[in-house]
Structures are given as structure tokens and as C-alpha cells.
Amino acid sequence: MSVPGSRQPSPLPSMSLRGAVDLSALKARATATPPQHATHPTADTAGGARADGTSAPAPEGQASQALAVDEASFPELVQLSARVPVLVLLWAQYSPESQRVRDELVAQLAGYGGRIAYSTADIEAFPQLAQALAIQAVPTAVAFLKGQPIPLFQGAAAPAQVSQLLDELLRVAEANGVTGTVDGGPTPEQAEPPLPPRLQEAYDALENGDYAGAEEALTKELAEYPADHEAKAMLAQVHLMARVEKLGQDHAERARKAAAESPDDLEAQLTVADLDVVGGHVEDAFSRIVGFISRNFGPERETARVRLLELFEVIGATDPRVSSARQQLARVLF
């Protein structure tokens, strides 16, 4: 989802949790009014930041705190990510490597002065999160920014690589108005100017799962402002999310089987490409459609090309994966 208050496409290579990542039930609790006496998530180490953004005193010499997130406390994490980016490390007791990375990140994130909150999720205690994010192995690090998941790394990444990823995460956060710290800072209301009325209408409709209402509002916006890139990106996301929402598990499995057995089955290839984008396998989705275009001609080729361009809008023109796929598309077309 493009970020409220911006008239340019968000640089986030991700989407709303609703429809795109199957965390809708968890997010629903995040948007509800929190209980008056809600308990805070437990911590892997004492002291540091709570999920509501306040600080607990940390013992001298302790770098920072990692919040242990479970299904009950996940909504607080979603709320916190509206003000400060949150790194979540998915780990498991059976994996010594994931435990080591979990502990090493405490010290590494301490150098960021509270500009990135740190949480951990034991996939054995919170399997719903691992399933929703399609986690294949531990350790896996995922950032959340304004409730949206952003894959960071899997496995034991080198400290220098982790630092580069964290620096980039902060740049993306700043570009989207998320500049708070775990100890305080700008609230979401202070950081975000309001959306234009029709985009706000579309945003609200999408949050309620009303894809038709979101599409109607965005279509009106584009009729009046054809060059509104944010509206175009939002509309592409609405189309994708509506298509995926209609898919049942059986349909998705049949589509994958058909795509594997019949490379020239347009509907199956486009369906699997949608699923790949939603699952974070963006390069696979782009390569699949470019491959279809290279093998086919006529109306089906044009249909595939148009769908690919729409998926480019979903991911964002500045994403290097889009730039690479555009080059591949140009080679097969010309």
C-alpha cells in the first residue's frame, strides 16, 4: 500500500497485510481498541523498549532489548511499526544458529539509537506468523513498516551485510515518514499529512476488504488526475489483492500444477505469477510472465504484457527487480 500523505509511490516493495499476506486476523486485532489493561510482550532480555514505544530501564552495559512476540502481542508490534521500523527475527529452539543470530542482533541494533525496534518470534510458539510470511528456514529476519512486512535476510548474514540492510531500512522508513524511536518521537498523526480525499476513500475501503469500493475511488481519481502515480500503484495493488482473494487453496494448487504441466496456459501462468508476487517471489513472477511472452504471440502475449506492467506498478518503478525485468521484457519484445 502506498503510504498515506505521499503523492509519490511508496518505495516499499511490499503490500497491505490484508489479502497479500495472510495476517488479516492478527491485523484485525491491531486495529481494534486495545484493552485498558493490556499486558506488554515479554522480553528476551531485561530493559529497553516496550511495544507501546515507552522505555523500561535497562541494566548498565546491556545493549538493548528484544521483545518476544506471540499471537497475542503481535497487534502491538503492528501498531509500533507505524512510528518506528520493527525488525522481527524468526528463530527456533532447535536451531543453534538462529539462537546465535538472535543474540548477536541485540548488540548490533543497539548502535541505532532506538530508531529500529527489535523483536523475536519463536516459530514453534508462534507458527501462524511463520506460515503467513511463508518462512522456509530459520533464522529469517523480516522488517515491519506501517504494518507491512519487508523481507531482510535468511540465514547467518554477515554483520556488514546486516548493517547495510538496516541502513537501507531506515532510508525507506524516512522516505515514508516513519522517523520515531522506541523512546518516543513523532506520532503517526504528526508524521503523516492527510491523503487526498479519493485516495483516503480507497485506502479506507481497502482496509475493510472492499476492493470494488477502492477500485471505484481510484478510477475516479485517475480520471481527474491521469498522472497520479500513487493512485496507479494503489489500483494495481487492489487488482492483485482482489484476484488473490478469490483464489481458494484448491484453485491455487491446480493453477501451479497446470502452470508446471502447460507452460503456455496463460491463465495458469498469470495466476501463479500473482501468487509468487504475494509470496515475495517477485523475480520468479516476472521471469514466468516474460518467459510466456517470449514463447507466444497474438492477443495472449499482449494480455501477459499488460499484466506484467501492472505488477511492475505493484512493486514500484524504482525497485531494481522491476528495472531488470523491464530489460528482459524489452529483449523478448524487440
Results as ranks from 00 to 15, higher is better:
residue 5 G to E: 09
residue 6 S to A: 03
residue 10 S to L: 04
residue 21 V to G: 00
residue 25 A to I: 12
residue 26 L to D: 06
residue 27 K to L: 11
residue 28 A to F: 12
residue 28 A to R: 14
residue 29 R to C: 15
residue 33 T to A: 11
residue 36 Q to A: 15
residue 37 H to K: 13
residue 44 D to P: 02
residue 45 T to F: 15
residue 54 T to R: 04
residue 55 S to L: 15
residue 57 P to C: 10
residue 58 A to P: 10
residue 63 A to R: 08
residue 63 A to C: 12
residue 67 L to W: 02
residue 70 D to E: 05
residue 77 L to H: 05
residue 83 R to T: 04
residue 88 V to N: 02
residue 89 L to T: 11
residue 92 A to K: 00
residue 95 S to R: 00
residue 96 P to M: 00
residue 98 S to Q: 02
residue 98 S to G: 10
residue 98 S to W: 08
residue 101 V to K: 02
residue 103 D to Q: 15
residue 109 L to D: 05
residue 124 E to C: 06
residue 126 F to A: 04
residue 131 Q to F: 13
residue 131 Q to L: 10
residue 133 L to K: 00
residue 137 A to F: 11
residue 141 A to M: 10
residue 145 L to F: 06
residue 148 Q to I: 03
residue 156 A to K: 10
residue 158 A to I: 07
residue 158 A to S: 13
residue 161 Q to K: 12
residue 162 V to P: 06
residue 164 Q to V: 14
residue 168 E to G: 14
residue 171 R to S: 14
residue 173 A to I: 03
residue 178 V to L: 08
residue 183 D to H: 09
residue 184 G to N: 01
residue 184 G to M: 08
residue 185 G to K: 01
residue 186 P to I: 14
residue 191 A to N: 04
residue 191 A to E: 12
residue 191 A to S: 03
residue 192 E to D: 11
residue 197 P to K: 15
residue 198 R to V: 14
residue 205 A to L: 10
residue 211 Y to L: 14
residue 223 A to N: 02
residue 225 Y to V: 13
residue 227 A to L: 06
residue 227 A to Q: 08
residue 231 A to R: 00
residue 235 L to Q: 10
residue 235 L to I: 06
residue 239 H to W: 13
residue 242 A to R: 15
residue 251 H to Y: 15
residue 255 A to I: 05
residue 258 A to Q: 10
residue 260 A to V: 10
residue 261 E to T: 12
residue 265 D to C: 08
residue 265 D to A: 01
residue 267 E to V: 14
residue 269 Q to H: 01
residue 271 T to R: 05
residue 272 V to W: 07
residue 272 V to P: 00
residue 274 D to Y: 02
residue 288 R to I: 09
residue 296 N to C: 06
residue 300 E to C: 06
residue 302 E to Q: 07
residue 302 E to P: 03
residue 307 R to V: 11
residue 314 V to Y: 04
residue 317 A to L: 13
residue 317 A to D: 07
residue 319 D to A: 10
residue 320 P to A: 09
residue 320 P to E: 11
residue 321 R to G: 10
residue 322 V to F: 07
residue 324 S to F: 07
